[in-house]
Nucleic acid binder design. Structure first.
Lengths: 195, 195
DNA sequence: TCAGACATGTAATGGGTTACATGATTAG
DNA sequence: CTAATCATGTAACCCATTACATGTCTGA
């Protein structure tokens, strides 16, 4: 149950509400983890009962009340032993690559269009990451900022950027392959490429 | 529910047993989809009731009986409309990258060791993929083989290979960053790099 | 004779998504 | 006045994992 460990890790960096934690997944962790608030609130509740974390109830008259969670000693120990544990077999799910596997059941032009759309999507995500980089890590990892914003958070952001760049490269390559196929289809059976 | 669509796609390519389908996920689709037999058998059963697929019961006296599933017209239509549908927001989960996010809670040398281990893991996976490529796609996509083994299956394999290569590159980069950090730690506060 | 591939199923549990439900403050 | 942000929760359902359960054939 890695969501538990993700929450422990985030709470190690400072107190946060369930709402804050939900935002963190959305804003900076979306390329390697996802969780919605309906999953987070009940789990925080349970983790508090298990004494992995504690909370402070902030009662406010003008605003809605909130709970600030903090990591407890047991939680720290749980986090460290998870970090050191051997990795589980990875079970990635990438629905959009799964679709590509079966593009043979679409007309060639439609397949090319979908790959272009993919490439644009990856480009947009990459642009988002570049904004995050410029905001939180100006000048790369070798700035005074690295003391506040974790070097490792920067590592995972860089991984996300590389992933998008690589996806873009792959889309271009795949499209070029399909164009060759299309050219072959226009010039049928045995006729050589060069004339 | 994309497992359903994955099964429809695989059955479009020819009849298969639940066992065959389970193997296909293991052998050639593990970097973008995963499913175990305990998920596949009940789903095939349900899909048959929904008339997306049909099956032929093969009764054997010497071996265990088996069911060969085939795609039905309704299944083909379902597959095509899924392929054309706009992609859902992707929800990747990468536990091992999640761990990296919190490596700040491990000693530096341990973090470096874990990144080395990761790199070796990716190298091993890449080697597996290269074997698959040599077996099923000798000479790349421009061989007569492409008529039998789908060009798109080759595309997804290439994506897997690029992914592993990129992961290896990232591991090396991350390790080099940590070595710099280590060097700085040995030579503390304000003292310049060169002398 | 023992491991591994072939072959199919179920049950219990755990994890995740969608929808329902509420309500204040702030900026446009 | 309206949308977005802050803020917390529950319920129903769906999807996925682990473990239980069985049995044959083939090759080392």
């Amino acid at each position: 149950m890695s969501l538990k460990h993700a929450l422990l890790g985030l709470l190690s960096e400072g107190g946060a509400t369930g709402y804050d934690l939900t935002k963190m997944f959305e804003l900076s962790m979306s390329h390697y983890w996802h969780a919605g608030h309906s999953q987070i609130y009940p789990l925080l509740d349970q983790m508090e009962k298990d004494r992995l974390i504690s909370f402070e109830h902030i009662v406010q008259k003008d605003k809605r009340n909130k709970k600030i969670y903090r990591i407890a000693p047991r939680g720290r120990a749980t986090l460290i032993s998870w970090l050191k544990a051997p990795p589980l077999p990875s079970r990635y799910k990438d629905e959009s690559l799964l679709k590509v596997r079966f593009f043979q059941y679409l007309p060639l032009d439609e397949a090319i269009d979908l790959l272009h759309a993919r490439r644009r999507g990856h480009q947009a995500t990459l642009d988002e990451y570049r904004k995050l980089e410029a905001t939180y890590f100006p000048g790369g990892p070798d700035t005074p900022e690295r003391k506040r914003a974790s070097l490792y958070a920067y590592f995972t952001l860089r991984r996300g950027m590389m992933l998008e760049q690589d996806s873009i490269r792959w889309c271009r390559w795949a499209v070029s392959q399909l164009r060759k196929k299309k050219a072959r289809a226009r010039r049928p059976a045995g006729e050589p490429d060069g004339g």
